[in-house]
Computed example of a mutant assay.
Amino acid sequence: MKYRHIVWIVIGILFIDQVLKFWIKTNMALNESFPIFGSWFQIHFIENEGMAYGLKFGGEFGKIALTMFRLIAVIVGFFYMKRLVREKYHSGLLVCGALILAGAAGNLIDSMFYGLIFSDSTDLTVAQFLPEGGGYGTFLHGNVVDMLYFPLFSGNFPEWMPFWGGEHFIFFRPIFNIADAAISVGVIAILIFQKRFLHKPGDENQKPVGTQPALDDTVA
């Protein structure tokens, strides 16, 4: 696999991620939803200020720190992927790395620019793209747009269960986006196939010390 293939994978995922986010942001009010396949797959528009799947990190300072960390990680990631391609690592690792890199870049775009280019989304109003009065935030202070919701099933925990006994639950509760999904798929695939993916090229040609055949002392 060549480096340009990595770049095209990243661009393709970014395009899908950003097109969907733009459509959601400019066509749906906050917390609005509609079904795709019955009740178990829905488009449900929310925004979050922090990490993937709606997690948050340390308030205002944490948000800036997280955005800067994403920026540094994406820049370093492109250089690291070039090294992996040059050293001819497994194509599966390269694809997974591209997925993770694309996901990080997708949410980074939201955090860096969405506060500048969109008006605020509320439960009653749909955001405008490039509003006359400026966006709802400043550089590095945009919210990440999430919309993929899979409430596969719900119920109540048994009364005898500690802490959550009798409480209502929904599986799968987190709402996420294409970028989050790309990161998750990339990380999970690497964990599952790590023995194959993380095998450094050339290792199979290295023989352990002491494996050379011994000379036959009986031969005159």
Rank of each mutant, 00 (worst) to 15 (best):
M161D: 08
P208H: 09
E47R: 02
A220W: 14
W164Y: 15
I178G: 07
Y53D: 05
F37Q: 11
V95P: 03
I175W: 00
Y149G: 01
R83Y: 10
V126G: 01
F37E: 03
K207V: 14
F153S: 10
F163G: 05
I11N: 10
L108D: 04
V145T: 11
I190Q: 12
W40G: 02
N48D: 09
I190K: 10
G202T: 07
W40R: 05
G77H: 03
G166T: 11
F69N: 07
A98H: 02
I24K: 06
W160K: 03
G210P: 02
F45Y: 12
V187E: 11
L93H: 07
F163A: 09
R196K: 11
V74H: 08
G115W: 00
F193G: 13
H5P: 05
G77S: 04
M51H: 05
K63L: 02
F57Q: 00
Q194S: 14
I64Q: 12
G38S: 07
A104Y: 07
M68D: 04
F113M: 06
N48K: 07
L71H: 01
I64R: 01
G103F: 00
Q128A: 14
P201G: 01
T26P: 12
S154V: 00
I11T: 08
K25G: 11
N48M: 00
L99H: 01
R70S: 08
G58Y: 06
V19Q: 13
M81C: 10
Y114R: 03
T67I: 01
L101R: 12
F153H: 14
Q42H: 13
Y80S: 04
F139R: 07
F37D: 15
Q194F: 14
G97A: 08
